[in-house]
Write a protein that binds this DNA or RNA. Structure first.
Length: 468
RNA sequence: GCCCCCAUCGUUCAGUGGCCUAGGACACCUGCCUUUCACGCAGGCAACACGGGUUCGAAUCCCGUUGGGGGUGCCA
């Protein structure tokens, strides 16, 4: 068991594979690493795990860095595993020399065929070349690590407690491909060792790799002047979808960049992500500035159970953050989301939008009617508004009065309500439906004053006509 | 199949043997405000998966059952 590092000794890393855009699951891992680094005054490391040349895309590295930056997650050191292949291979060679690893020329198909021929239901590598003393053949042999046949490999997880694996269940896994390129486990173990990583904070889907990494670390420690003590592991609960399954790129909306593009605020996203698997120690409000949470953040407060990524709650967080902005700030962040709405019009109506919109991409729906063509209300709304009473005369009177009054917000409001008083009727809803096509929305008077009187009258007349 | 893990309101976080007739937030419902909606405010609905232990006492500890998830790649 390792002595927990504290204070400025802490070194954590976020290690994404650049095989896709940053998704919410990895963003959460990055965040928790960052929280801990900042809480302890330690070092946050970004390590790009791009050992799989076929799937890694260099341009995605920048996309990931951008998304992290957007979330306000910064780092103190950065590495790329593709720059360090020589080190991993040297380490692997040494393992072979010392008999801790060996060459193997079995193809996956051959292994599978042997397993099926045996018919005992076992899968995975069968140890066929374990003791056959094969030597290196260019493009043909992989390097496999020789796992112990007996005993257990165990460790204490800061979040999940003691976890133990029977070594007999560990197969001899590949550490160097036949192409000569090292794989995840060696690269990961070597880097954690040589970079002095003290805390490994990552998703629960990686728990099963711990024994392999631990075994490798032990085997490689003599090669370097580094602390052989294993790091502290903290495996985060998975973030799941409504089916309680790990978020997947194919089925779920997981790209952090997509949320940004839709008009979620970085602070809201970060704050929400933080509440998945963790809550403030003081039991206080879950929406607060990040500094407050950084101060309280402890890895062993993290939950064990998976958490559902609830977009509805994210939206609530975003709404709160949006409303906490000054109007000027709100106008600023809204710019990319205005759609057909002129900037000066939006500036005038921004306060109305600010308290109604939860995500910025909802702005066109809220205000678009002002500049769009005449609306087409649903039958349901139509019936709700015009279904009873004698709406015809009310509309007639509205058209008449509105054709006549001053064209200012105050005069329009006074006119519409005046007709209401005169006829003892509610006049706002009919006007609203005629102009916007729906029964809910921002106050009408300013937008109406901004619109041409003729347009307003046209929509009112069209509604009157449909009434028959 | 084998290995590992998880289990409190619909969701999320709180609860670490007595303060729990289980608390906050989201969602939902009701009311207030308002000639719309929203914001705001006041209420409401709603959970310790099940079965055995341990204990004077269990949501909290142990065992089992059931359910769920993750892994099982020359991916990470």
């Amino acid at each position: 068991m390792s002595a927990p590092a504290t204070g400025a000794d802490v070194r954590v890393r976020f290690s994404p594979a650049p095989t896709g855009y940053l998704h919410v699951g990895s963003a959460r891992s990055a965040l928790f690493n960052w929280m801990y680094a900042r809480h302890t005054g330690g070092t946050m490391i970004l390590r790009i795990e791009d050992t799989d040349a076929d799937r890694s895309k260099p341009e995605l590295v920048d996309a990931i860095r951008d998304s992290l930056g957007w979330l306000g997650i910064d780092w103190d050191e950065e590495y790329r595993q593709s720059d360090r292949f020589d080190q991993y291979r040297a380490a692997a060679d040494s393992l072979v020399e010392r008999g801790l690893a060996y060459y193997c020329d079995s193809t996956p198909e051959e292994v599978k065929a042997r397993n099926e021929a045996r018919g005992d239901g076992a899968t995975g590598y069968d140890g066929y070349n374990r003791d056959r003393g094969l030597s290196f053949v260019e493009g043909k042999t992989v390097v496999r690590f020789r796992t112990p046949e007996t005993g257990t490999t165990e460790y204490d997880d800061l979040i999940r407690g003691h976890i133990s694996f029977d070594n007999s269940t560990l197969e001899d896994f590949v550490i160097v491909r036949s192409s000569g390129v090292p794989l995840f486990h060696v690269a990961n173990a070597w880097d954690d060792l040589t970079m002095g990583i003290t805390h490994v904070v990552r998703g629960e889907d990686l728990v099963n790799t711990v024994p392999r990494v631990l075994l490798l670390r032990e085997a490689m420690a003599p090669l370097v002047d580094a602390d052989p003590t294993p790091p502290v592991f903290a495996h985060l609960p998975l973030i799941v979808n409504e089916q309680r399954k790990k978020l997947s790129k194919r089925r779920d909306d997981v790209s952090v960049g997509d949320y940004r593009d839709r008009g979620f605020l970085a602070d809201a996203m970060r704050n929400y992500l933080l509440t998945l698997g963790w809550g403030p120690r003081d039991g206080g409000d879950e929406i607060r500035p990040i500094d407050v949470f950084v101060e309280q953040f402890e890895l062993d407060d993290i939950n064990k159970a998976p958490a559902f990524f609830d977009v509805t709650k994210l939206e609530h967080f975003n709404g709160e953050y949006l409303r906490a902005l000054s109007v000027e700030e709100f106008v600023e962040v809204a710019q990319p989301h205005l759609g057909p709405i002129p900037a000066d019009l939006f500036a005038a109506l921004a306060p109305y939008a600010q308290e109604r919109v939860k995500v910025l991409d909802g702005i066109p729906e809220l205000l678009g009617w002002i500049v769009d063509d005449a609306p087409d209300p649903s039958d349901k709304d139509w019936k709700k508004v015009f279904g009873k009473g004698e709406p015809g005369p009310i509309l007639d009177r509205l058209i008449e009065a509105l054709g006549d009054c001053d064209w200012t917000a105050a005069a329009i409001e006074e006119t519409v309500f005046g007709v209401g008083t005169e006829l003892d009727a509610k006049t706002q809803l009919p006007v609203r439906l005629a102009l916007t096509g729906v029964r809910a929305g921002i106050p009408l008077w300013e937008p109406m004053a901004w619109m041409d009187r003729a347009v307003v009258l046209d929509r009112l007349r069209a509604t009157r006509a449909r009434l028959g």
